[in-house]
Amino acid sequence: MLVPDKKPLYELALNKMEELIKTGVWKEGMKLPSEASLSKEFGISRATLREAMRIMEDEGLIAKQQGVGTFVRRKPIIRSGLEELFSVTALIKLQGMKPGTKDFTFYKLPALENEAEKLKLNPGDEIYKVERVRTADDIPVVYCVDRLPRKIVGDKFSGFEESMFAFLENEYNIKITYAVSSIKVVKHDFTIEKKLNIGKNGSVLLLEQIHYDENNMPILFSSNYFNADKFDFYIIRKRD
């Protein structure tokens, strides 16, 4: 039971639960006890407990999964602002971690209608489709699917080890200068979950980007599936 003082009860409950996470009593990924159990343990009403848990959810300390329960969120290992354009390799290095690649494959095939539209190609024009899993200190963090027009990289394309940006600049003197992006949540995709080694309760963020060179030509269409437990994206918004 919480020891009364001048603070509101929800704030006392909030401080107690934050301390349980901080000290490791409540570990990352752990499912929390039921509201009934917690309200009884703290000697507070469910309404008071819910207010404390709402604040914790806003702070990113816990995550509710409908019909499953409430879990302690795993701390992200990589943080990035969405207003800056980094390669995945550079992003991992900025965190002081070692980037790596696994499950590398590529194919030459006709562009699908949506791929052709985004890359300003005719439907059926050939592209290279590159698939790989990017790792940070050997931990799978991003499943990358990149599409490159064959007319840009030619017939001798054979892949690369890490940064797509560096590959294009070093091999073809093409510099990516900006990207148009969208981000969405992906739910229950077995293939992606297996690639990133996450369970059914894990979360995946899809960042789709069309990358352009300095002449405003679309060079690369990417679909990057991020393990949301490993990444924390943010954006700085300014008011005029």
Score class of each variant (00 low, 15 high):
residue 180 V to C: 00
residue 155 D to T: 13
residue 172 Y to W: 07
residue 149 P to R: 01
residue 143 Y to Q: 01
residue 187 K to V: 14
residue 162 E to Y: 14
residue 133 V to P: 08
residue 142 V to R: 04
residue 174 I to M: 08
residue 179 A to Q: 06
residue 176 I to F: 02
residue 143 Y to F: 15
residue 158 S to W: 01
residue 147 R to G: 03
residue 132 R to V: 10
residue 177 T to H: 00
residue 159 G to I: 01
residue 185 V to Q: 12
residue 139 I to N: 09
residue 161 E to K: 13
residue 142 V to I: 15
residue 164 M to G: 02
residue 176 I to C: 06
residue 154 G to A: 09
residue 180 V to W: 00
residue 152 I to M: 15
residue 187 K to I: 13
residue 174 I to G: 07
residue 156 K to E: 14
residue 168 L to Q: 03
residue 165 F to G: 05
residue 132 R to E: 10
residue 160 F to L: 05
residue 183 I to R: 12
residue 149 P to E: 05
residue 151 K to C: 09
residue 174 I to H: 08
residue 196 L to N: 01
residue 165 F to K: 04
residue 144 C to T: 14
residue 174 I to L: 13
residue 163 S to F: 10
residue 134 R to N: 13
residue 177 T to E: 11
residue 168 L to S: 05
residue 134 R to C: 11
residue 137 D to A: 03
residue 142 V to E: 07
residue 196 L to Q: 01
residue 132 R to C: 11
residue 140 P to I: 08
residue 161 E to P: 00
residue 139 I to T: 14
residue 170 N to V: 05
residue 146 D to E: 15
residue 183 I to D: 02
residue 142 V to Q: 06
residue 181 S to I: 03
residue 156 K to Y: 09
residue 149 P to Q: 05
residue 164 M to H: 02
residue 139 I to S: 05
residue 188 H to M: 11
residue 161 E to Q: 10
residue 145 V to L: 13
residue 165 F to Y: 15
residue 194 K to C: 00
residue 163 S to H: 07
residue 133 V to R: 03
residue 133 V to K: 06
residue 191 T to P: 00
residue 177 T to A: 01
residue 169 E to P: 00
residue 192 I to F: 02
residue 143 Y to N: 02
residue 151 K to V: 12
residue 158 S to N: 13
residue 170 N to F: 00
residue 178 Y to N: 07
residue 161 E to T: 09
